[in-house]
Structures are given as structure tokens and as C-alpha cells.
Amino acid sequence: MPAPMPTVGYSEARARWSEVTKRVIEGKTAVTVIKNNKPAFVMVPIGDYAAMAGSPRDRAFLDIADEVTEEYADVLEKLAR
């Protein structure tokens, strides 16, 4: 049985955006964001999203995005601050 998906409240996700996104990216773990006591959306690692994407073209774009994100991770981290 897979481990339950971590959840975080919407306000907490906004306040701790860097920490939550780091958990998704580095931990390769999806996180459910709750708003008004209901799941609002799920943040998923790009690889998981690519696996869910329909067409090979969609996956190709996501692979490129993933490569760019990895290559420029240091720059993106500085911009996120």
C-alpha cells in the first residue's frame, strides 16, 4: 500500500512556498493543497506529470522543461527568494 500523500493548507503553502516546492522537487513527492477544508490542487514532480500527460509531444515539452530546470536550478533558486 503506498504511503498517503502529504497535505498542506493553502495559507501555509503560500507562506512556506519554497519549502513546499522543494519537497515536491527534491523529494519527488506529490503534495495536496487544501483550501476551505477540501483538496484544491496537487503539486506533482514534473516526471510524474509527464507520465500522466497524453501525447508524446506533451511529454517531450515536459522533458525539455525538466532539463532546463535542472540546468538552471541555482538561478531559479535565487529568483525564487
Rank of each mutant, 00 (worst) to 15 (best):
E12L: 09
D74F: 11
I25F: 06
R81F: 14
T29Y: 01
Y49D: 04
A50Q: 04
A13G: 08
A3Y: 11
K22G: 12
R81N: 15
E77F: 07
V33M: 06
Y72E: 10
S55H: 08
Y10K: 03
Y49G: 13
R57Q: 13
V42L: 05
M43L: 15
E70G: 15
Y72M: 07
E19T: 12
A13V: 05
S55G: 04
D74T: 14
K35Q: 12
V20M: 11
G54H: 04
F61V: 07
A53H: 02
D48W: 04
P6N: 06
A50S: 13
G47N: 11
A13R: 01
P4W: 04
D58V: 01
M5T: 15
N37T: 08
R14W: 11
P2M: 08
K35D: 12
P4Q: 07
P6H: 03
P39Y: 01
V42Q: 14
M52A: 12
Y49R: 02
V24Q: 03
I46G: 10
R16C: 09
E19D: 14
D66E: 14
R57T: 13
E19I: 04
V33P: 11
T32C: 13
N37K: 09
G54W: 00
F41W: 08
G54R: 03
R23L: 10
R23N: 06
D58H: 11
A65L: 07
K38P: 12
V8E: 05
T32I: 09
E12R: 10
F61S: 07
L62D: 05
G27W: 00
F41P: 09
R23W: 01
A80P: 01
P56L: 02
P39S: 01
K78C: 06
A60S: 12
K38A: 15
E71V: 08
A53D: 04
A3E: 15
D63H: 10
E26Q: 07
A65R: 08
V24M: 03
T29I: 02
I25S: 12
